[in-house]
Design a protein around this nucleic acid. Structure first.
Lengths: 259, 259
DNA sequence: AAGTGGTCTAGACCACCGT
DNA sequence: CGGTGGTCTAGACCACTTT
């Protein structure tokens, strides 16, 4: 068919956006998907909100419902949207219990007692080191927020996290707001700053505990710890978090499924 | 429509199988998928072989091509099949370069020089320990093959593997055949024993090197090592391999993508 | 009953691959 | 060229949720 989406807009007053003549042709359903992802990135629909129905989108785009469906199918497979039969299609959110622990892979050796507790104890602003600036794609020595926290399972300290965020993007974040929040960190960032974490890359290593980690986790210095370095990305593969976690794996393990 | 697949068979002389009246109804495309998975599990088509075309399958099942398509789509997403436009749909194989390193997540700190070398140096049969028997769902003390090997990147030893396989299923596997093979282990098991690894679960921990691991990897005893315990499964979630790998992560890291 | 996503059809045309 | 998978349509009916 080699069509292109015309100037149809999805919402009143939404910008015509960069949907003009794409130099590289892509199937209709992909153009629609790109458009919808753009809407999500611009925050047209808040976290957990319902997007228009398939029928309505099909009408607005002048395509058949099956084409819209394929676009939404892919986005649901990427955890950008959540379909609920009979109700509608919704913007995925970290506030949803289903995706609350989507990025936490540590499990206890015995059953699955997932009673975890996060205790942030420090929140400061520092100039980025070269490594962090590179990971977050920031200029050298740009200000970053550094959050230190301990994560416990069933009362046992298991993770010492050092979390780095671009200070500009998250100005106003404080130790008080972190401690006051009932939500998970990602859920809080989503609600307070409109930034949604879509995917992340982790690099794992075994290291000997340094003084600070040993202290916070209550183990001897030089004990083996699992080092987990995470870069988390928002829409458009934009890195917005760099995290260094030290995991105590004496009675817990990091689970990974290979497909 | 609430149909059910009739007694149509996919291949001449293929058993009518357990496709009778399912007590729980599932969509047509799922029944077709289940049937195709069954064919794969029974080895109707060898690794890398082409399966019948969508049109032909649709005809045999008396459904539309779109329904067959959805079944195959899901199987392709699960790495059971590989679609190739203009050519056909093929049974996924570990012999394919694309999926050669599908289960190996270790990467060097610098670029991506993936010049790896496997050197098996021991292959014996032992009674299963309780842990291994449980992981492989074997009776207590059932005989298992134990393969020990070293994996090197660019000449540097980085992984010490201890691989456990049910001896009955893989009788005939020897150190000589392992060393003679040009293929990867999974590719060899696929070709020689018709057993395909579909997915795997890994549990990661940081540990202090024991004497044997330290010796093989050329590090001091008690050095921190990444312990990777893997259970690999064939069709129908049947465990067929249990592996204990010790990874030297001084100049390499274990990569994991969180979706 | 009305609206939503979920399944299925029959047919069209396109893009790619081999001969 | 014929065969394959890839895209798209228009319409039907089903299953689920809410009003």
């Amino acid at each position: 068919m080699t069509q292109e989406l015309s100037s149809s807009v999805l919402l009143p007053a939404s910008a015509p956006a960069a949907r003009a003549t794409a130099p590289t042709f892509s199937p209709l359903y992909r153009q629609i998907k790109d458009f919808l992802v753009d809407c999500l990135a611009r925050g047209e629909w808040g976290p957990g909100a319902a997007i228009p129905s398939e029928a309505e989108l099909a009408q607005r785009f002048n395509v058949s419902q099956g084409t819209v469906r394929k676009a939404i199918d892919e986005m649901a497979a990427e955890n950008l949207l959540v379909r609920r039969q009979g109700k509608g299609t919704f913007v995925a959110t970290h506030d949803d219990p289903r995706s609350h622990y989507r990025f936490l892979r540590l499990l206890p050796d015995d059953g699955k007692a997932v009673e975890s507790h996060s205790e942030p104890f420090s929140c400061t602003v520092l100039p980025a080191t070269a490594e962090i600036a590179a990971a977050l794609q920031l200029p050298a020595e740009a200000p970053v927020i550094l959050i230190k926290r301990l994560l416990s399972f069933a009362g046992k300290k298991v993770i010492f996290d050092q979390i780095h965020l671009p200070a500009e993007q998250f100005s106003g974040l404080s130790l008080e707001s972190l401690r006051a929040s009932e939500r998970s960190l990602y859920s809080q960032l989503e609600a307070d700053f409109g930034v949604r974490m879509i995917h992340a890359e982790e690099r794992l290593r075994a290291v000997a505990a340094d003084a600070e980690s040993a202290h916070w986790l209550g183990v001897a210095e030089a004990s083996p710890l699992l080092l987990v370095e995470r870069t988390a990305y928002s829409y458009g593969n934009q890195p917005v978090e760099w995290r260094r976690g030290l995991y105590l794996t004496a009675q817990h393990y990091y689970q990974n499924n290979l497909g």
